[in-house]
Design a protein around this nucleic acid. Structure first.
Lengths: 145, 145
DNA sequence: CTGCCTGCAAAGCGTTTGCAGTTCA
DNA sequence: TGAACTGCAAACGCTTTGCAGGCAG
């Protein structure tokens, strides 16, 4: 449970927007609320399958897309691999290791200086959540010595 | 001509590593040297086709991969779309607009503060060139008002 | 009962790979 | 000459889409 958002709150938002609340949607909401964030669609799909039978990956993608439109979750591209999904409001962005493929959270504040420079120099509005910056993590850097 | 690297220099490096210099490789080198950076593999392939007949996209990918191994060029992931390729040594990273899909260069120095924070807080070595940060560009932000 | 939502399968995009033939050194 | 390189086509991983049926409201 990495977020303060609950399944019930997600259900309310979905209904408030005139969308229907189904078993697959409940399951996806549950997985997102119970996770530590940054799960791929495939991982979400696997966990959903353990809650509800026969939920197809395409349905998971459609539900994640709906949740994004409702401002409930967002996805982050991590370079080579699949995108990761997480509930909004965590106050963190992501970095990915090019060697081991792991993903970590970093406080959004780390991006403040960069965002300010981008905005003042070229009028660019940074969204630090939408892509994960790449690099090499502590462990992989140590192994590479 | 956005870089100071020349086709001849690339040819020398390729030969120095015992690799062969072929027509397709010359053409890719030419396109990279003549471009302003951040071209997708498809765009490179199209421009190569205007220089040499019947060069397949897979060959372009293989040549770009070889150039990367030789430290001549690198690719940057831009979120949803295709990766962009450019010669190394430009001293700049990239940002992408989520609305129009455009890509811009930003000085690597903009990332210095963030890189320092990532390193001191979690030992992460940032490579600012490998992914393009996302956001909304000046024009699209204005249109969205 | 109506139309939003779903499962399935197929297609899509960007990229990689296997293989037989070609070409550079 | 022979290893490196190439074109073609097929496969790949991730994601989206078309369609016929199913279920929420």
């Amino acid at each position: 449970m990495s977020s303060t958002v609950t399944v019930d709150q997600i259900v309310l938002v979905v209904r408030a927007h005139g969308k229907r609340v189904t078993q697959p949607k409940r399951a996806v909401a549950h997985v997102l609320c119970d996770s530590e964030g940054h799960l791929t669609a495939e991982e979400i799909s696997l966990r959903v399958d353990s809650l509800v039978e026969d939920v197809s990956p395409s349905t998971v993608y459609r539900i994640l897309e709906e949740f994004e439109e409702l401002g409930l979750c967002e996805h982050t591209h991590t370079g080579h691999g699949a995108a990761v999904y997480h509930l909004v409001g965590g106050g963190h962005a992501h970095v990915t290791c090019n060697v081991c493929g792991g993903t970590w959270q970093v406080p959004t504040e780390f991006f403040d200086g960069l965002a300010e420079q981008l905005h003042s120099s070229q009028g660019f509005h940074l969204n630090p959540h939408h892509v994960a910056l790449a690099g090499i993590c502590r462990e992989c850097a140590a192994h590479h010595l």
